[in-house]
Amino acid sequence: MENGKCKMKGRSSGTAAKKAAVKLSAMDRVKLARDAKRPHIWDFINAFCSDFEELHGDRLVNDDRGLVAGFGTVGDYRALILGHHKGATVEENMEANFGMVNPDGYRKAMRLAKLAERFHNPIVTFVDTPGAYPGKEAEERGQAEAIAKSLEFFAGLKTPIVVVVTGEGGSGGALAIAVGDRILMMENAVYSVISPEGCAGILWRDGKMAPAAAEALKITADDLKRLGAIDEIVPEPAGGAQKNPKAALASVKKAVLSALKALAGVPADELVEQRYAKLRAYGNFY
């Protein structure tokens, strides 16, 4: 059930960064996770492989620039890479909707993941989004259906999936590409059912109470590890990944490669059974 968990060192975030710094609040982490200077999808792609080929489109209506997809060689593995793209410049931000994906993006991801399954390519996903795009066309083209279908689809996909939450794991829009066999999370990333601001607006009736909401929601890597929602925390350099991107990227790559290696020998049917057991155990208090 808790596949591979026994190999974990448990709560592995006792890094130099953490010891040196004063204890960060949940809202401090949110700020770090949203820092525009944090490594984004193309930094990961460039650090992970030198032969990446991006592929476009959902074959229905659109190519969503908020979700990057393509094949590349990662270490010994020919992998499909999927990731939210917030954009590094203003033009990219606009084009990519700040990483808020439309249904088209999730459908592109599923299309290419199906291809990866056919040719036994493992999948690595990078999660960094404020959430799925709340737009008129997004609703008309079935945002809810696209996310729902992704969850069902990735749960049953017969190829290894390694997920890395690198920045903001914003609710359903994040989860849509975060169902996998090994869920890694960078030390300063956050992952939540709702943004702290959104939660504060509803339950505190005051968006300014976001820090209290962030604390209450338990959204940091440590919290998620404790709750069993993720498998492994990837430590960041002192002060956060943006202070030393090169080191940060290297430790993520190392963690991903070791996860891929652990999954490589598992027969596909067994992999899917283990993945289901993992999902099934989420919040099983009964």
């Binding site: 609710s171 059912v193 919290d223 998620l224 289901y276 999902l279 099934r280 989420y282 919040g283």
Partner: peptide, 18 residues
């Protein structure tokens, strides 16, 4: 999703869909 149950309420979306 039920915010009061945090990340594990989000995970129910994946669990039920699976």
């Amino acid at each position: 999703a039920r915010m009061h149950e945090g990340i594990l309420s989000l995970m129910q979306m994946a669990k039920t869909s699976a």
